[in-house]
Design a protein around this nucleic acid. Structure first.
Lengths: 199, 199
DNA sequence: ACCTTTAGTAAGTTATCACTCACTTACTAA
DNA sequence: TTAGTAAGTGAGTGATAACTTACTAAAGGT
């Protein structure tokens, strides 16, 4: 029953993420989290001095998860278009495994409440965008995609693809696999990008 | 000072929408709205029996605004690709003029709290998607876009484009015009779709 | 076996939320 | 002019949120 502080902190963070998906981020009260874990509400404040810092830990966990997934996806992949596909696939995978993320972006705790966290998230998404743009530029210099397209514009289109898939899945009945439908759309978009070469 | 019920209701709804954008949907308390308008909190309940019904009126106003904008955009436009562009542009315009919409999609009031409203919103987005898909299919039969693309997939890509632009703008510093950047991306995407014909 | 550390508890406090109700004041039509 | 109606008020209510404090008991090293 009684866990070490480190384990308990991790348990709290992951419980918050689960509940944020199930009932919405704003419904995640300290009481609800404590009950879910099987502790009293006061026990949470032994591990996190305030609810804001608890959300901070959650945000850090999410951004770390994203960064790790990108790193893993790009490992030993050097072909630019392969890297683009791997990056987008990784992003879809993390969101599918952490379905609270889309809602989190718009939650009170991470936007209105905590300007720093909002900045951190934006920065992370910026890194994603720039990485995509860099690989797209490389693909362009190899003549794999049309030269008259701006890499950043295409990167925006690909980022939007992920976000759109996530939104439809988050708001929808969640019957289909977000990862599969997202990847299918990605293939369509990548084929469009490569089309001038094909024929 | 004293307004008719119709005017007051409209004022309350538009105030809620403004404040939802400024401070986030969940921060929009009855007290805050009343103070903003210059009424007592109790006065709101003279016009709306509950806060849930107030949010219902807000959602109805938003969906009506969307439907009207689509209708206006499609009027006297028969060329399929022109219609697609007009639809997406209209969507971007409404969101730019009603910036609370993206947050609203993920707000507690319209998702966790009120399943009916959530369904209404989803249905509206579904109509948008189907309208796009129909015009894309028409463009396809005219040979304007590649025949091996599925209209619904392209419609998803275009919907995602709007959602992505809205997200970046909602989370970002809002320095640039969402409508302009969105339309620029739309042109890029439409050029990609038409490319197989061009050359 | 004992003692220090620390995870956890019980029972609060304060603030704020949506909502109510008895009452008052401003319009309007006869 | 006046009576009726509808908009608006002031002062509440109970529920629930985050957070506090004084205490308890389980680990772990010596």
């Amino acid at each position: 029953m009684r866990k070490s502080a480190g384990l308990r902190k991790a348990e709290i963070v992951s419980t918050v993420l689960e509940m944020a998906d199930q009932i919405g981020p704003d419904r995640v009260t300290t009481n609800a989290v404590a009950k879910q874990i099987g502790l009293t509400q006061a026990a949470l404040f032994r591990h996190f001095p305030s609810k804001a810092e608890l959300w901070g830990a959650v945000a850090e966990h999410v951004t770390d998860t994203l960064a790790t997934a990108w790193e893993a996806a790009l490992e030993d992949v050097s072909d630019p278009l392969e890297r683009v596909r791997a990056l987008v696939a990784a992003q879809l995978g993390v969101i599918a495994r952490t379905p609270a993320i889309p809602m989190l972006l718009f939650s009170r705790e991470l936007t209105t409440e905590n300007e720093v966290l909002r900045g951190a998230f934006r920065e992370r998404l910026g890194v994603f965008h720039e990485t995509l743009a860099a690989d797209l530029a490389a693909a362009q210099s190899q003549g794999r995609i049309a030269a008259d397209l701006r890499p950043r514009d295409i990167a925006y289109l690909l980022s939007s693809l992920v976000q759109g898939a996530a939104i439809r899945w988050a708001l929808g009945p969640r019957t289909t696999s977000m990862e599969e439908t997202g990847l299918a759309l990605l293939d369509v978009q990548l084929r469009l990008l490569e089309c001038r070469k094909d024929r």
